[in-house]
Amino acid sequence: MIKFEILRRRSASDPPYTATVSYDRDADTTVAEALTYINAEILTDDPVAWEHSCRQKKCGACAMLINGVPKLACDAWLRDYPEGVIRLAPLRKFPPVRDLMVDRSVMFENLKMLGAWLTENADGDTEGTAYDASRCLQCGCCLEVCPNFYAGGKFSGAAALAPASRLISEAQGADRKRLYGAYNERFYRGCGKSLSCRNICPAGIDTERLLVSSNAAAVWKRLFRRGKKK
């Protein structure tokens, strides 16, 4: 028997409350599956709102706090919580919508402000950075644990580091200069290098490696080149 304690709220303006549900089925499954069962069979008239899509940790939809840790519900197995209590709560860095749903649009707005796109043809990346960085799910788990990120701030966190790193690794010409500047302003200057994002990524992206390679390209080599010119 597993006890689910689910932090719910009817809307952003309603106060949160905890709903407790007993789940007595097979533990060899995921939190996502258990939630599906709970909604279909137990809370039929008032199902828990949560975002979900791929069910195989490739889309980032079902990110939530599970016993306080940001995780994908489809990648959290009941057997890994032997104490028998699983607490589900919405991510806290984003505005609440209802129940476990939050509004993560700030991540996409930040990428727009960063100018995360190319205007010229990509210059083929040969070091695998583009591939690794392109795996980012935009789930927001990294922002949840980041001591420097808050919604509305200029610092855009590792959820912007990954797309920026992909683009920096492939940019040429005017794109390169533009992206270097934006990276400095919206990432490098705000990152306290706590690296709390390092082991939290559900896609297993090595944020430290991206940080090192993008800092090298956008900050250090650039400064060095500038110095040499003088």
């Binding site: 490739k58 996409f108 990428l111 727009k112 100018g115 995360a116 796109w117 190319l118 205007t119 990509a122 591939y131 392109s134 795996r135 980012c136 797309p163 992909r166 683009l167």
Partner: peptide, 23 residues
């Protein structure tokens, strides 16, 4: 192909390409 994540890789590039026009 891009390893065995071709769809994800294409989506990432197209999302960025469309973002330019969102801005």
């Amino acid at each position: 192909f891009a390893q065995s994540s071709t769809g994800k890789m294409i989506m990432t590039s197209l999302i960025d390409a469309v973002r330019r026009y969102e801005a």
